[in-house]
């Protein structure tokens, strides 16, 4: 599934044109991206939570050379699926 399929679904289930549907889907992801960029989390009941986390500096290794390197502190985005989504994935095959 890609953004085009989401646009198609919005188009089929609402009265919007394809062009409008495409703009609206784009807006939804824009709003989500801007929210996450600002460090805020997004909680979608029934789907899951997108959470921005701060990771401290740590020591790691280059897995290819074994050389020890410092991994700088960073902000990462994580996704935690909701119980509802996890349950529906595991119900589908009985």
């Amino acid at each position: 599934m890609t953004k085009a399929d989401l646009v198609e679904n919005v188009y089929l289930k609402t009265g919007f044109s394809k062009k409008e549907s495409a703009e609206i889907v784009e807006m939804v992801f824009d709003i989500m991206k801007n929210t996450l960029e600002g460090g805020d989390k997004i909680k979608i009941a029934g789907f899951g939570n997108f959470v921005v986390k701060d990771k401290a500096t740590r020591r790691g290794r280059n897995p290819q050379t074994g050389e020890e390197i410092e991994i700088s502190s960073r902000r990462i985005l994580t996704f935690k699926p909701s119980q509802v989504l996890k349950a529906s994935l595991n119900d589908s095959e009985g």
Binding site: M1, L6, V10, K13, T14, I24, S88, S92
Partner: peptide, 15 residues
């Protein structure tokens, strides 16, 4: 309605 269509579609695709 639109937000629901988006996340329902995504859940269905994964399921």
């Amino acid at each position: 309605e639109i937000v629901n269509i988006i996340f329902d579609s995504m859940s269905d695709a994964l399921t």
